[in-house]
């Protein structure tokens, strides 16, 4: 691990200012992803801003019937909140499908959104990776790509976004609240929060330097039946090959989002409209334009079959 200086932030705006005005600074909250990457020197911050003392760890009711989740609410606490369990079951299901009990106790709501990819070439500093070293090339496209994206990638990067939580939040149309270094705040729809790689795969989100996530808001509950089906190589504690988040209403309408297939949580509202016609109709729209590799072509079929299983369960 490279040496770094360390400070504890006192307010969100001070954290944002410090991050914007210090070279190679990073926020640290749970640290479960950042420290892992610092140990292998994929991340080499010169300065860490510890935000754990900022509070931001409560879940509050909003005026329009939704919830405002503080950025530092731990994954365990968000999953266990009685309001989330009752009205946002897909979010609880997604959270407990991710990581291990120990990691969920540390990992935060804001940090989970900012996880880096688990693409093996991003982790292996001996291999070229445009996300880790822009311009180096992408070893994944011709390499071991079984885990990687089938849609939304570019010739420069086919990494997937690893978060389960973010897939549920995309399904729920959450908003990400931030504070900027100049003290202004903004709310970013989750659909716009994560970027596709294009020719700048090193930039994962639309956050500007120093911008700090303070909360994630969930709109009023959707009702319906909630599902998060995650297909992976182990029964527990593994990243998704494919995951399907869905809310299905009694009349068969609803929403679908996918994890494990794209550089960001993958949802197209026009695909939701096809839900009453079944999984094949949904996937024809949701995965239209997919460009799988020879190793991950199976994900296209797997996504459709996983959604079919969800829809069968919804009818029970």
């Amino acid at each position: 691990m490279r040496a770094f200086t360390y400070e504890r932030a006192e307010t969100p705006q001070q954290a944002a200012m410090a991050a914007a005005s210090t070279d190679h600074a990073r926020f640290i909250a749970g640290g479960t992803n950042l420290l892992d990457l610092m140990k292998i020197e994929v991340e080499t911050p010169a300065h860490l801003i510890d935000v754990n003392g900022l509070g931001l760890d409560t879940i509050e009711d909003t005026d329009d019937g939704g919830l405002r989740v503080g950025a530092l609410v731990r994954n365990t606490d968000l999953a266990a909140d009685p309001r989330v369990r009752r009205h946002y079951g897909v979010l609880t299901r997604a959270l407990v499908a991710g990581a291990s009990g120990q990691l969920r106790n540390k990992a935060t709501t804001g940090g989970n959104l900012l996880q880096r990819t688990r693409c093996p070439y991003f982790y292996d500093t001996n291999m070229p990776c445009n996300k880790r070293r822009p311009g180096a090339g992408c070893a994944a496209r011709e390499g071991f790509s079984r885990q990687l994206a089938v849609i939304g990638g570019s010739e420069h990067c086919i990494a997937t976004h690893p978060s389960d939580m973010a897939v549920a939040m995309r399904l729920l149309d959450a908003e990400v609240e931030t504070v900027l270094p100049n003290g202004n705040t903004r709310a970013i729809p989750i659909a716009d929060f994560h970027r596709l790689p294009g020719d700048t795969p090193q930039i994962d989100s639309v956050l500007i330097p120093g911008e700090f996530i303070t909360a994630v808001t969930l709109p009023r509950p959707l009702g319906g039946k909630h599902f998060y089906h995650k297909v992976r190589d182990r029964a527990s504690y593994a990243f998704a090959l494919v995951s399907v988040a869905a809310v299905v209403q009694p009349d068969g309408s609803g929403r679908v989002a996918l994890g494990g297939v794209a550089p960001k949580p993958w949802r197209r509202e026009e695909a939701d409209e096809a839900l009453p016609r079944g999984a094949k109709a949904v996937m024809a729209r949701l995965l239209d334009g997919a460009e799988p590799t020879h190793e991950n072509r199976f994900k296209v079929n797997l996504a459709e079959r996983t959604l079919a299983a969800v829809l069968a369960e919804a009818k029970e």
Binding site: Y6, R8, G31, L35, D36, G101, Q102, L103, N105, K106
Partner: peptide
């Protein structure tokens, strides 16, 4: 609460 001690910095445990 259980955590992985390897993924936490000592200075963060004041």
């Amino acid at each position: 609460r259980r955590v992985n001690a390897c993924l936490s910095l000592a200075v963060m445990h004041e």
